[in-house]
Nucleic acid binder design. Structure first.
Length: 123
DNA sequence: AACTTGACTTCAA
DNA sequence: ATTGAAGCCAAGT
């Protein structure tokens, strides 16, 4: 059996992997999709401990206000900005214009929502 | 057991 | 638009 922590991580990784190239979303949003509301801070922790072989687009996860979560002088900050710019996302003063780049997982199309089922993605 | 620490969020000045 | 306090919660000291 897998620990609850693994469940959480897998769910987070799954949803982060769904973010389309050139779009961004927030830690809190991922937490909700994963089924763990109020765990935004743990999403960042999970990403930090994610295996690099998963090739997760971690750079597409930012703060709820569109701000890069890393400290501006940090190493990760520069890396994240570079990666985002590379895929067409514009960053102004450390922030992304959410009106333009925010990703929302919309389930209005119920017929395809089945394709996005974390349960079947792992294992 | 008590306190600190985050790649967070929300709300009120 | 900015800032700061408070709320959040699992992990680490």
């Amino acid at each position: 059996m897998s620990s609850q922590l693994e469940e959480f991580k897998n769910a987070v990784y799954y949803w982060v992997a769904q973010i389309p190239k050139g779009k961004v979303t927030s830690y809190g949003y991922i937490a909700r999709l994963a089924g763990y509301p109020r765990h935004a801070r743990h999403v960042s922790k999970a990403l930090g401990s994610a295996d690099k072989s998963l090739n997760l687009p971690w750079q597409r996860v930012i703060g709820s206000t569109g701000k890069i979560a890393f400290s501006p002088d940090s190493n990760g900050y520069a890396k994240q900005v570079a990666l985002l710019k590379k895929e067409g996302v514009t960053i102004i003063n450390g922030k992304v214009n959410l009106k333009q780049f925010a990703w929302q997982f919309v389930e209005k199309d119920k017929s395809t929502s089945k394709a996005f089922n974390p349960e079947s993605f792992f294992k």
